[in-house]
């Protein structure tokens, strides 16, 4: 076989592959949003934070508001959220993200501002800031990731840890008689007049991911209306600290967390108001 023939055959083979592959720009139906950076995330395998970050980035890209959005990261596992989102961001002290977000929004009222907070940050150390930010009806979006545990510090009991649920500081299970009850902060803030939109979602399956994205999108869109605060809870998992595989943690979440923290809207704007 001459060299020339070989080259032609290889060329032919490549062309054949190219023809068969449907992976072309025309056929692309889903890829990560541009605002989500390529930096590999530090989260444990199967952690819901990654999906939540991506959804924020998708909404920012789809609304075309990357230049006008400022995010506030909390202290907790998502302390490094600013490493993954290609927007201006501020990293707040533990529990104070909503106060930080309040101030940014007050001095930049035309920008989109959101805080991203975990359950320890938002519902324990930052309870006062959360409630007062909601009650003042600041025109911003709070995204609340509730996985019922302190992930970053290694699995201690959170304000949202379920009764009987084990953690490193409730090793025999949360005893509500001595450790108190889990705090349904989302139900609590939904009562406040400053809160315009309040919903509880999850990112455990494709359907819930779509619903969570829609909720985040509404949270950004409502900022334009200056009607008040949007509060989006995402019930999530913590495979590492729940000591389960990602799939098992999702199943446990569906059976236990969703029973205590039922998914759905807690407060939706009046249609006429919209």
């Amino acid at each position: 076989m001459s060299e020339k023939t070989l080259v032609n055959e290889e060329q032919h083979f490549e062309e054949m592959i190219a023809e068969e592959s449907i992976c072309t720009t025309d056929n692309l139906v889903y890829e990560k949003p541009d605002t989500l950076l390529d930096t590999p995330m530090h989260y444990c395998p199967g952690c819901g934070h990654g999906v939540a970050h991506r959804l924020i980035a998708e909404v920012i890209d789809e609304l075309g508001i990357q230049e006008d959005t400022i995010g506030v990261a909390p202290v907790g596992c998502s302390v490094f959220a600013y490493n993954y989102l290609n927007i201006d961001m501020t990293e707040a002290a533990h529990g104070r993200a909503s106060a930080v977000a309040t101030a940014i929004k007050r001095v930049l009222p035309d920008k989109y501002v959101f805080s991203y907070q975990g359950d320890g940050d938002l519902a324990a150390i930052g309870t006062a800031e959360t409630i007062h930010t909601c009650n003042r009806g600041e025109n911003l979006l709070i995204i609340f990731i509730n996985n019922g545990i302190y992930g970053m510090t290694g699995g201690q009991m959170a304000p949202t840890t379920l009764p009987g649920m084990k953690s490193t500081t409730s090793p025999f299970g949360r005893d509500v008689a001595t450790m108190g009850n889990p705090l349904k902060i989302t139900e609590l803030v939904a009562q406040l007049p400053g809160v315009y939109y309040c919903t509880r979602t999850a990112v455990n399956n494709a359907g819930n991911v779509r619903r969570a994205k829609k909720a985040i999108q509404k949270g950004f869109e409502y900022q334009k209306l200056n009607k008040g605060l949007s509060f989006v809870e995402i019930v999530s998992n913590c495979p590492s600290n729940w000591k389960m595989t990602p799939l098992a943690s999702n199943k446990w979440m569906e059976e236990n967390m969703f029973a205590f923290y039922p998914l759905g809207d807690l407060k939706v704007p009046n249609d006429k108001e919209k």
Partner: peptide, 26 residues
Amino acid sequence: MVVLQAESEVASINMVYGAAGTGRKI
């Protein structure tokens, strides 16, 4: 200028942190 009575000094100083980050005089 924005004047906000916060819920605590803890909130106040963190508001200063957030707002100062925008490059304004806070």
